[in-house]
């Protein structure tokens, strides 16, 4: 990155987040992981917690997230990031801990770990990227694949009679007493991106205040495996995903409510 002097009559209003490294991301063109990484990094910068943050990367497309976040990071086994985060946070209660997980990782193989972490009210934050497909393995049916959605392992479309229904994680975790702040957002347009950032900030603030477990589910796209252009994918997600996965907060504990009102 080149550095330039800021002229005396100008003010710096926008810069590269300190919590992101300068490594080139491997994500496909049109992938929304890059946007979400940036939002998380901006929030860590704004809260001034980069130097005490520890992230856990999942198995999936964002498996290499540890190259991109300029914070201490560990790489978990598939689905086990919430268990790792639990162990890590319990012995480092003064640190800020987050897991970054996709839908296969969190909602299929790791559903037990996330439910129990939420139910125990573990003091970490989960960023759950839901794009309704297994991206890294090449477009198989995910726990969040929509009814009728075609994938390489549901070639005639997801049949809920045999494959079951898409997992509504934000609703599922909301009923658990240990969860403090659970919300579903989407990075499908600029207003959505701004709302997602606000939600991420609140989720990390809830952790810093020791209010309990927080998770931001983020509706996302997969141009490559949906076989669509990036713009078309954003529209498809709005048209098909948002109706099944309604946006908004599913859980705001009293403590988080007070935090929201104090801001």
């Amino acid at each position: 990155m080149t550095t330039i002097e800021i002229p005396a009559d100008m003010e710096l209003v926008y810069e590269y987040p300190k919590s992101l490294t300068e490594a080139y991301m491997h994500y496909c063109p049109g992938c929304t992981h890059g946007v979400i990484h940036r939002l998380v990094a901006e929030v860590l910068d704004e809260l001034d917690v980069r130097e005490k943050t520890i992230g856990i990367a999942p198995v999936g497309c964002s498996v290499l997230a540890y190259y991109y976040f300029d914070v201490d990071m560990a790489e978990a086994a598939h689905g086990r990031a919430p268990a790792m985060a639990t162990g890590l946070k319990r012995v480092s209660p003064d640190k800020v801990v987050f897991t970054y997980q996709g839908d296969g990782d969190l909602a299929s193989i790791g559903i037990a770990e996330i439910i129990y972490a939420a139910n125990r009210g573990e003091m970490f934050t989960t960023i759950f990227v839901n794009n309704a497909i297994y991206g890294m393995t090449g477009g198989q049916m995910a726990p969040t694949t929509l009814p009728g959605q075609k994938t390489t392992s549901s070639p005639t479309g997801r049949d809920v009679e045999t494959a079951g229904w898409p997992m509504k994680v934000a609703e599922l975790l909301a009923v658990l007493p240990g969860s403090a702040y659970i919300t579903r957002q989407a990075v499908l347009d600029v207003p959505g991106i701004r709302r997602t950032k606000k939600a991420l900030k609140l989720a990390f603030q809830a952790q810093l205040e020791g209010l309990g477990f927080s998770m931001v589910e983020i509706l996302s796209t997969c141009s490559t495996n949906w076989h669509m252009g990036p713009a078309e994918a954003l529209e498809w997600a709005k048209e098909h995903m948002v109706p099944y996965y309604p946006l908004g907060d599913t859980k705001v504990s009293d403590g988080v409510r007070a935090l929201m009102e104090s801001k």
């Binding site: 790792m84 162990g87 890590l88 946070k89 319990r90 012995v91 037990a112």
Partner: peptide
């Protein structure tokens, strides 16, 4: 399964 991954996480923290 969770136990050993909690161990992994705490061990990563140097505990």
């Amino acid at each position: 399964v969770a136990s050993i991954n909690m161990v992994y996480g705490a061990a990563c923290a140097g505990a």
